[in-house]
Amino acid sequence: MIAEYGQDGIVSTSCDVYSFGILMMETFTRIRPGDERFTGELSIRRWVSDSFPDEILKVVDANLVQLEDERIDAKMQCLLSIIELALSCTLVTPDARISMEDSLSTLQKIRLQFVNSRR
């Protein structure tokens, strides 16, 4: 799935959405899609998806959230929402993927919820 972008010589916004989702996964896990652990059927998307939501701490960067953190609930909700968005961007069927406009709107809502949780 890493080669999705431009697959079959066709470039589309759904390919951009897919790449954006993979980039979010890479950012929040600090693991590259081409990491040696991803062999055979295991990809970064499957690895993240298999851990979502109950075992998400096994895949997200440990520097982002630690169990003794203040506001762990708000941080976890934010991370879960971002990972859920990333998974929506990387659905196998391009037509089933969220649009970039909806991705932006969702990110803005996640940010607003996180900021409001600090008050």
Rank of each mutant, 00 (worst) to 15 (best):
F20A: 01
R118C: 10
I110A: 04
I56N: 08
I10R: 09
E68K: 10
E55W: 07
E4H: 04
T13Q: 02
D54I: 09
P94Q: 05
V115L: 08
E41H: 10
M25F: 09
K109D: 14
W47Q: 05
A86S: 14
C15I: 02
A74L: 06
E36F: 13
V92S: 13
C78R: 07
G40K: 03
M1H: 14
E36M: 08
Q77F: 05
I2N: 11
I83M: 15
D95N: 07
E68H: 11
Q113F: 15
Q108F: 14
R97N: 03
R30V: 01
D95E: 07
Q7I: 04
C89L: 02
L67H: 15
Y18P: 00
I22V: 15
D8E: 12
S88E: 14
A62M: 11
L107N: 07
M100Y: 00
T106H: 11
I31P: 04
G6S: 09
T13L: 01
D61L: 11
I44D: 04
Y18N: 00
K58H: 15
S49R: 07
R71D: 05
A86H: 04
L57A: 12
N116L: 05
F114R: 08
F52V: 01
G40I: 03
I98T: 05
V115Y: 10
S105F: 11
F52A: 04
V11C: 08
S43Q: 11
S43A: 07
I83K: 00
Q77V: 07
I2C: 10
S49W: 03
R118N: 07
S88C: 13
E55F: 15
C78Q: 06
P33E: 06
A62H: 15
S49Y: 04
L79Y: 06
T106D: 04
P94W: 06
N116H: 07
S12F: 01
T39H: 13
Q7P: 02
S49G: 07
C89Q: 01
S88I: 02
A3M: 11
L91T: 00
I82V: 12
C78Y: 10
Q7A: 13
A86Y: 02
G9E: 07
L91H: 00
P94E: 02
S43P: 08
A96Q: 07
A96H: 06
L23Q: 13
L91Y: 00
L80F: 05
V17T: 04
D69T: 05
I98G: 00
K58Y: 13
M100G: 01
V17F: 00
A74S: 11
S81E: 14
C78M: 14
D16C: 02
E101K: 09
F114L: 11
V11G: 03
I44Y: 05
L23C: 11
D102P: 03
D54K: 10
S99T: 12
R30M: 10
A86W: 01
D95S: 09
L80P: 03
Y5N: 02
G9P: 09
D102S: 12
E41S: 13
G21E: 02
S88K: 09
Y18V: 00
Y18F: 12
D102W: 03
R30G: 12
P33C: 06
E55R: 13
Y5L: 06
V59H: 05
D61W: 14
D73G: 05
R71P: 01
C15P: 02
G6W: 00
N63S: 15
R71A: 08
Q66D: 11
F114H: 10
D54L: 11
V65K: 10
L87V: 05
Q7M: 08
F28K: 04
G6I: 00
